[in-house]
Amino acid sequence: MEVVEKKQNGICILGLLGRLDSNTSPEFEKKIFEVIEDGTKGVIVDFESLDYISSAGLRVLLKATKELKRSDGKIVLCSMKEYIKEVFEIAGFVSLFPIVSSVGDAMEQF
């Protein structure tokens, strides 16, 4: 897995490539917590090039959003494949994160 970081108007965009599973989640966790500790209040996670997610990946997102909420920040998710969105629906995560269809739409959430 690869995490590509971009900044735009003070918002941090993390693009995920490949698989977010039990092996790769610690790397994503490290990255997103670095961004939060740097004081970023707005984080967009771009799922466009993500092919796979398991509960290990959901765990990191839950932990990160709890952390950001404490400082009034938020995470917006975008560009998910249909079968990945289904995982979020079954897990009841669609009520925890705004999920939109593009990075552009995600920017408008801030």
Binding site: S54, S55, L58, R59, A91, S95, L96
Partner: peptide
């Protein structure tokens, strides 16, 4: 079964993997 409805502060990740698997 995990509680998939409760607010974020009480949300736990435990057993979510099994919940997904059963589905």
């Amino acid at each position: 079964e995990p509680d998939c409805e409760c607010p974020i502060e009480q949300r736990k990740i435990g057993n979510l993997g099994i919940h997904l698997t059963k589905k």
